[in-house]
Design a binder for these strands. Structure first.
Length: 341
RNA sequence: AGGCCAGUAGCUCCAAUUGGUAGAGCGCCGGACUCCAAAUCCGGGGGUUGGGGGUUCGAAUCCCUCCUGGCCUGCCA
């Protein structure tokens, strides 16, 4: 029996961090065993964050180009265990059918639905310039997914609304053409606790919060140690009380990075007894983070940009095959394209 | 399409005595204190005043123009 297709995308937004790794990427790696996976570096999505301000000009030298960042991202993903021989790894803009299908979908999607997207409302409120692209973002996302007739899309909580829209768009397209052209997409909610910011454990780890809030996968050990050492804890005075969010986060990182039960239990017992030394806990956390990151950094350092570019070209070729077929079917059903003889 | 108002540090600003050295709070960076942090204290960096042009010895301030946002009116007759 044929394996189902999984699609997922990530913006080439620079360096991956621990939150990305345990929130998404590690899951991507595992899914490769059970599904045909299509992993896409969505550079056109990243363009929505690059308009408006003077500092966001496309050619501004203060920004790396998205092309450069896409290559970096691909390298990082492979270092994390995305295997381009098993999965299709490519860059969105290398397969133009994404934007082509997005146009068709923008004629299928409901304006009202789009105005209800909380992520749009959120970002629009915080921007001084709101492009149509930002508004249409979920439509392009729907195109990304359905272009490969994906059955499953691993998403975080914040993306379920967009995925629901993709389902609606697919269904409506099917209704319009009178056949089940696009399969029903299923969200695969990525479970598990999220890693929180080190400096502000009330928020999920994110680069946008600031430098000291996240641990980059490719960062130097001493840079990481500086961040781990300065992570928020508590005054440690309530014996046996609730664990503070910052401390709980450190325990979570310890667990995720594969600390053996003895180590975790030992610290837990000390914490319960009110005798824990957070300095020691942090040393252990650092130690385990580096155990995970060292081999990743090592693999990454052995890759050349040329090698990555070749891999992405091959990935784009494989993706194109599927995308072209889907798009040909769409054109035929919409009634555009070269006339049939 | 026209009219009116607005844009000052990463963020928030009725700071800038009305043409004379660009400020505050928060955040950020460094230090002290902490087992590590937080809080607190001490210190520090940071802005082509939305962009461009002009007037002037001198412009955040006056003029022109463009950009972005908001409000009002019109257009489609």
């Amino acid at each position: 029996m044929e394996k189902k297709t999984v699609f997922s995308g990530i913006q080439p937004s620079g360096e991956l961090h621990l939150g990305n790794y345990y929130g998404a990427i590690q899951n991507w790696v595992r899914l490769q065993d059970r599904f045909d996976c299509v992993y896409c570096i969505v550079d056109y999505h990243a363009v929505t964050g690059r308009t408006g301000r003077e500092s966001d000009k496309f050619q501004d030298p203060r920004h790396e180009s998205l092309a450069t960042m896409s290559v970096q991202m691909a390298g990082d993903l492979m270092a994390c265990g995305i295997d381009p021989r098993r999965s299709i790894l490519f860059v969105q803009s290398h397969v133009p059918e994404h934007t082509e299908l997005a146009w068709v979908f923008s004629c299928v999607a409901s304006h009202g639905d789009l105005t209800r997207m909380i992520q749009f409302k959120d970002k629009a409120d915080r921007s001084d310039y709101v492009s149509v692209g930002l508004f249409i973002y979920p439509v392009l996302q729907a195109a990304d997914i359905l272009l490969y007739r994906a059955a499953k899309v691993p998403v975080g909580e914040d993306q379920v609304q967009h995925l629901e829209l993709a389902r609606r768009i697919g269904r409506r397209f099917n209704t319009l053409v009178g056949e089940e052209y696009f399969p029903e997409v299923e969200a695969e909610l990525t479970a598990g606790k999220r890693i929180m910011s080190l400096a502000d454990p009330a928020h999920k780890m994110s680069k946008s919060l600031g430098d000291k809030h996240y641990v980059g996968l490719m960062e130097e050990p001493d840079a990481i140690w500086k961040k781990v050492r300065s992570a928020v804890t508590d005054s440690g005075e309530q014996v046996g009380g609730e664990m503070s969010p910052g401390v709980a986060n450190l325990f979570e990182i310890l667990r995720l990075t594969g600390a053996v039960d003895d180590v975790v239990d030992g610290f837990k017992a000390q914490h319960a007894a009110g005798k824990i030394r957070y300095g020691d806990l942090k040393t252990a956390v650092q130690d385990h983070i580096m155990r995970v990151l060292d081999p990743i950094r090592e693999r990454r350092s052995r890759m050349s940009d040329d090698e990555i570019r070749d891999t992405l070209a091959a990935g784009a070729a494989r993706a194109s095959e599927i995308a072209k077929a889907t798009m040909a079917g769409v054109r035929a059903r919409v009634g555009v394209g070269p006339p049939p003889r």
